[in-house]
Amino acid sequence: MNPEPIDWKKYLIVFLFTLGLFATASFVSNYFSNKKVDQLKSIQDKIAIDILSSETQFSLLSELSCKNVSTYSILGGELGELGRKLEWGQENLGKSEEVTYLRKYYSLLQIKDYLLMKKINFRCGGNFAFILYFYTTAENCSECEREGLVLSTLRDKYPDLRVYSFDYSTDLSAVKAMLDIYKIEDTRLPALVVDDEVLTGFHSIDELEIKINESFKLQEKETIEIENKE
């Protein structure tokens, strides 16, 4: 009694077939990933145009009126949304190069937004508070994760709080310039900048709330001063 001989050819055919199925699945998933990267690109482009347009508008009209400029500030949420999508994309899309590139661009947009908003805030009397947040993804930073949670809670609580987050390892001269200005070191992350004051290490929600409220008061005072001058 001999066993049925093994049909090696069949084992191979099944292997090739399975490989084919995997390739198809991978092709389909790649297609969707590409679509998502495209989606990210188009959101980013739209935001870039918005910022550029507001900047230009501001330059044109700054001396005359503040009325028209304020429209941009409504869009603040979009930048945060894009940030969340990019972060998710970094972890899940498996297109690291393209996403890294988009994240660089995003950092730049954040800086531009920060500068513009500060100007608008100053000249046109907005009541915004700003936090620059530096973290790292290069190493495991559990404090950064916790600080991130604190900041999103605060952002949720204070719609007029604008948080800009920067990955320490971002290879972009503009980000490096900021790191230089505030003397941020990678050994002391997370780091926060509130009203030009640098805070390193983890800061709880209560500590930051005090700072933010001070910042809001400061802005208010400045606004009143400007109005009085005018």
Partner: peptide
């Protein structure tokens, strides 16, 4: 969160062939 959680198809994980396989 004050914002209601919204379902954005963007976050549907279609990554690394997993879902399709």
């Amino acid at each position: 969160s004050r914002e209601l959680p919204t379902i954005d198809p963007f976050f549907l994980n279609t990554q690394s062939t997993f879902l399709f396989i």
